[in-house]
Amino acid sequence: MTSQLQVDGLDAGYDDLQVLNRVSFSLKPGEIGCMLGPSGCGKTTVLRSIAGFETAWHGRILIDEVEVSTPGFSLPPERRNIGMVFQDFALFPHLKVEENVRFGLHRLERREQQGRVQEMLAIVGMLAYAQAYPHQLSGGQQQRVALARALAPRPSILLLDEPFSNMDVDLREQLAREVRNILKQENNTAVLVTHDQNEAFAMADQICVMNEGSIMQQGSGYDLYHRPANRFVADFIGQGVIIPATVESPTAVKTELGLIRSEDVIDAVPGSLVDVLIRPDDIVHDDDSPESAIVVEKAFRGADFLYFLRMDNGLEVLCFAPSHHDHKINERIGIRLNVDHLVTFSRN
């Protein structure tokens, strides 16, 4: 299988400080990848290494199967055929929208330039603003222009550096979906950097969760949420609690909430102690259940309630309940365990 972007064992850093540690991943043509992680985890350094703004210490980067970075060699950014959208959009304030989009097309003939500019402005829905200057546009509009400008020269790969962090929170997911549709329309390969998992879920096909310079897990949003590979990913993606358990059989563990069965074989010998991840959706509110817990805290979220519950044995768990199940604090409610994916971690 050909890959559009391939990163192999990348080490990078500033002066003496190593920021990246053996980062490897690859994207197929048309795939949208995402580097997701807390601030300072090195995700932006990965992006800037791909772009060529940072020089890697070790490892290789291939764009379109061409080596652009190997130890001792780094192709300058302007020759890598990449497009990039910046956190602050970095539109040129002295150029009109149309001229900004045309900026990267200087190698084309005048007529081709004009056609491509019109095409890109149409795709991002900014044709009406072709003659406007960047400062006359709203944040969302500036972002679309930045996207059009980056995509106009048909880059081999598009890099997006926290492109939604300057936006209103309620706009972010909608914009992420919009951008995804635009990218898919032209079958672009792209890498997004963000610290916001909802953005990552809304936009990416492949998500690399990063921490302290290493990739902790690569997979779809579904995999990361339901099959986290380690405690960091379990904690970083979504909510949940970790409770102790004993392995009963190769496919079941015993917890204080009861027996949990798994479809896969558990990676631990029967009788050993493990930790189990319980997501809020693993606990179902059921008034008829014999098991019950006391409401300690609750958060109304519109479509549902997130309840913080304390069980009789002192264990605290989270539970999503439908929006109309409004219970009071200190009220006792019935709960039932419903674990589709059993996630266990060995005790250390």
């Binding site: 703004f53 302007e78 020269p153």
Partner: peptide
């Protein structure tokens, strides 16, 4: 002139000398 504008121009395949001239 923010650093990101320089970076943006380079990602649009301009050399540093061209950036000085055009941006």
């Amino acid at each position: 002139i923010r650093q990101s504008m320089d970076d943006a121009a380079r990602s649009l395949s301009y050399t540093p000398a061209q950036i000085l001239l055009r941006v």
